[in-house]
């Protein structure tokens, strides 16, 4: 009587070519220049970062391009102690939702140059970019965010973005 088969390996590999689309293409060209790009909805006038081309609430194209600030506010965060495949960051690291000045939507970014114990909601931060010759059409152009020394933002200024 042989051992029952409990597992078989069936390796698979699939390759994909992605289409960023018009809107994400514009975002990426911004990142290539070291600038965050926002897109304004013609209907509700909200400015979306990393937009995929439509206003999520109105379902209309966000055609108007807005250059956003390099600074923003930490709206909320978590401290990560779990290693993930493909992550080369030292543990623990801080994941934060960052609301760029002039934008109406936060996005998740890495915070560095502050001890994990000092991270807080309302912290003012700025983006640190890779050196100019390494800038590319990718989010990897943003190395991380760090405190920019400004006083913390009041809760009222970002409470709608939680």
């Amino acid at each position: 009587m042989s051992e029952p088969v409990t597992m078989m390996a069936a390796p698979m590999r699939l390759d994909y070519v992605f289409t960023p689309g018009v809107a994400q293409g514009k975002n990426m060209h911004g990142l290539e220049r070291g600038v965050f790009i926002g897109q304004r909805c013609p209907k509700c006038k909200k400015v979306y970062t990393l937009s995929r081309g439509s206003c999520p609430t109105d379902g209309v194209p966000t055609d108007e391009i807005v250059e956003l600030s390099n600074t923003g506010t930490v709206t909320t965060y978590c401290v990560v102690n779990v290693p993930f495949a493909g992550q080369s960051i030292e543990l623990p690291y801080i994941c934060a939702q960052i609301l760029l000045d002039g934008a109406n939507l936060s996005f998740m970014g890495l915070i560095q140059e502050i001890p994990a114990g000092e991270i807080r909601m309302g912290l003012r931060v700025e983006a640190v970019w890779v050196p100019p010759d390494e800038l590319g059409p990718t989010m990897a152009s943003v190395k991380y965010f760090r405190p920019n020394g400004e006083p913390d933002a009041a809760f009222e200024t970002y409470k709608e973005y939680l």
């Binding site: 289409t19 960023p20 689309g21 018009v22 809107a23 994400q24 995929r52 081309g53």
Partner: peptide, 8 residues
């Protein structure tokens, strides 16, 4: 369609 993403 190499120009648009699914949403577009």
């Amino acid at each position: 369609d190499g120009e648009h993403n699914d949403v577009e």
